[in-house]
């Protein structure tokens, strides 16, 4: 019998349950905090803060960092919360991964070299981070929060996220591999 506890310790829920939950969360986020759920600006703030640490505050002079303001804000806490929430769900469902460097789908095409996977992840991250700021949003900010508000910018973005992503993934797995 499914009890409340056993639901929490299930590794996977129906994607619809997770999606409806995220939709309800977006109501609460708008109602209580007056903000849409979004994550990518936090990575940009982190970059500026690291530059500040290294150069003793020079990042403050960059127009982009003046625009987004380098501080620990609501969204920073949200992103920290995502790490915690995922950790919590993984731990209670026995799904926390220890020592996994290479995802199995990647390994099936490119082998189990840790160095190769980390280098490609680093390169992918650079493209993703650059694109997220270039496009002014990511899969959360545009892909969920913007689309559910029916923003034209976000619907255009999410369509092109997937066009770029589907083409690149097919090239990686069917041409390069």
């Amino acid at each position: 019998m499914e009890t409340f506890i056993s639901v929490l310790t299930d590794t996977f829920w129906s994607p619809y349950a997770a999606g409806i939950g995220i939709g309800i969360l977006s109501w609460l986020s708008f109602l209580i905090s007056g903000k849409p759920i979004a994550t990518s600006t936090t990575f940009a703030r982190a970059g500026g803060m690291i530059e500040n640490l290294i150069t003793g505050g020079k990042a403050e002079q960059r127009p982009y960092y003046k625009k987004i303001k380098l501080s620990i804000d609501w969204q920073w806490m949200l992103v920290s919360g995502v790490v915690l929430g995922s950790f919590l769900s993984a731990i209670i469902s026995g799904d926390f991964q220890v020592g996994v460097w290479v995802p199995s789908l990647w390994a099936s095409a490119f082998g189990d070299s840790t160095v190769l996977r980390v280098v490609v992840a680093l390169a992918g991250g650079i493209i993703l981070g650059f694109g997220a700021r270039f496009g002014d949003g990511c899969t959360s900010g545009h892909g969920i929060s913007g689309t559910l508000q029916l923003a034209v910018s976000s619907w255009v973005s999410v369509i092109f996220f997937f066009i770029g992503g589907v083409i690149a993934a097919h090239l990686i797995y069917f041409v390069i591999a």
Binding site: I127, F134, I159, I167
Partner: peptide, 12 residues
């Protein structure tokens, strides 16, 4: 920007 993001999404 979104196309660049999509490529990064697939690579990462």
């Amino acid at each position: 920007g979104a196309l660049i993001f999509g490529v990064g999404f697939a690579v990462l």
